[in-house]
Nucleic acid binder design. Structure first.
Lengths: 159, 159
DNA sequence: ACTAGACAGTTGAACCGTCAAGTGAGTGTG
DNA sequence: CACACTCACTTGACGGTTCAACTGTCTAGT
């Protein structure tokens, strides 16, 4: 039995494969496209943008490192390196939580907020162009729901 | 005007933002999940897997580097480094096209095919679990179409 | 033929992410 | 109240990706 002859439900049907390959193209090219735009226009990566965006939504512009990691879907290690770089650019600072020294708070600084606000319009326009205004209304809502369902399956154990 | 008060069509509505953030989670976590499974079970990254899978579908198990780059959505530079590593593992070899020395052909070797075939069942099962059998039928088809439409927008010029 | 140019691919340095090991603060148990 | 333990990070080394510069091959114009 060679690789191409087999066609049980262990493999994918032609249609399933085509859809899956489209999804693969999406998950490889969309992050790349967004990163490229942000890098070119604002010298920020998408994770850096998201990180600062999450902080900017907090009343105190502050979040625990572990919360930030959760919300940006990154490892604590990656976030730690990343925040260190943002710190050296004066976009963010860290301080250990006075109430419980195990936690570290990341705090968005004015320069970080300014950077975010200068990057936002171009970023949002590009997201609109590629996704929101391209796949609009009900289709966008369904896309979001499908994405959420896949992400939940990733999180669920049993494998 | 602060960052949180503004709400024109330059920004995203609450619903649009929620859908977009779901998509962001998808495009950050799905590649990570697939990579983790392949790395753990087969010591391959997703790009490496896709690269060899593309080659295995060719009658001569051969493709030009530039074709491979196109099909796997990677830069030529990244592919060149990647193929060099696959070459050192005896999964692939390269030869410059005898007919036109500007082209280089990548050729899947028996060891590469064997690696691919041993990795495939686990990979496919995981893809089924996360996506194909999770979001099945019509929803999968629509997801594929939406993905394709977004990718086409990325490729189209005008920005 | 010679030269300029375009094209395909390679290379090395810098940068980023991952992994495994380590630190340091709080918690719970004898 | 000491000691092991958990939890929240941090760190450094390593490996992969990107970027810009380079090499080598063919093509077109003269």
């Amino acid at each position: 039995m060679t690789a191409t002859e087999e066609n049980t439900d262990l493999w994918l049907s032609e249609g399933e494969l085509a859809s899956w390959l489209s999804v693969v193209r999406l998950i490889t090219r969309l992050p790349w496209a967004i990163d490229t735009q942000l890098q070119r226009d604002a010298d920020l990566s998408m994770v850096e943008y998201m990180t600062m965006a999450m902080l900017s939504n907090e009343p105190e512009r502050t979040l625990r490192m572990s919360d930030l990691a959760e919300r940006t879907s990154t490892s604590l290690s990656r976030l730690s390196h990343l925040v260190k770089r943002l710190e050296s650019r004066e976009f963010v600072r860290r301080e250990s939580d006075p109430a419980d020294g195990r936690f570290t708070n990341a705090i968005l600084l004015p320069a970080g907020l300014a950077k975010l606000e200068s990057a936002a319009p171009g970023h949002v326009a590009y997201v609109r162009r590629l996704v929101v205004d391209n796949i609009s209304g009900e289709r966008l809502r369904r896309l979001g729901r499908d994405a959420e369902q896949i992400v939940q399956r990733i999180d669920s154990p049993a494998r």
